[in-house]
Design a protein around this nucleic acid. Structure first.
Lengths: 119, 119
DNA sequence: TTGCGATACCTCAAACTTTGAGGTACAAGC
DNA sequence: GCTTGTACCTCAAAGTTTGAGGTATCGCAA
């Protein structure tokens, strides 16, 4: 099911995390999501459409998102909402992110100490 | 000088950050560094040698690190230490990392609010 | 009424990162 | 003599992200 063969210890996962989180708050379409990420991170992070759309398609294919085709006037939109499976994935993503942040902070703050490590 | 053409908003940079930080604390050789990352992040992050060595080589080529070839017994080692240029890069890396963490946290904590954003 | 910019979708090559497995060689212990 | 650990290294493959390209509709202003 999961085509993830490797066990990536890091691998960012940030765009995916933000997508799941923001869509869990409010269903949106892709273009809106790109703007929302920019707005919600106070311009700190900017992911282009070329990054977001493929992730959206993949998450939908994996059953994490439910995309509903809508016509507003003569314009087409795909509004995505998070499925229960997607919510579980979100929880996992948040936990992963916190683990990474904790690990990096632990390293940055900790004034070496510990065992002298090797010679 | 910097062959970095793009303006990556994210791009992790975590291995590089940890390398510069740990070497600023204490000069080490590559193999030791791999173990040190594991130890200092309490096993939270594990970067293989295939990830670390190329970064070490690149940072040395860029003048961020100064690698000294040593012979211990009959064994060869390359002990790396951070140059002044590398320290400046470290400061930049830390700032980048904090910015990313702040942005993601801002997004995760902030209960939407802000403008209703688009229709 | 033509042209522009914004909205909205999409794709793709190229650049870059990281994994996982491969290799060499020496030293120590069993 | 074999295995394990140290220490260096490389590379293909998989993955991510960028930046630029494309289509089409809409509303506004010149």
């Amino acid at each position: 099911m999961s085509p993830r063969k490797t066990n990536p210890p890091f691998r960012s996962g940030v765009p995916e995390l933000l997508i799941l989180h923001l869509l869990a708050e409010r269903p949106m379409h892709g273009y809106e999501l790109v703007q929302a990420i920019l707005a919600h991170t106070a311009g700190g992070l900017e992911f282009g459409e070329g990054c977001i759309y493929p992730i959206l398609h993949r998450l939908e294919a994996e059953g994490m998102l439910d995309g509903r085709r809508q016509s507003v006037g003569n314009r087409n939109r795909v509004v995505y909402r998070v499925t229960p499976k997607g919510r579980r994935e979100l929880a996992r993503s948040v936990a992963d992110w916190r683990r990474v942040v904790a690990a990096v902070n632990h390293c940055l703050q900790g004034g070496e100490r510990g065992q002298p490590a090797l010679a």
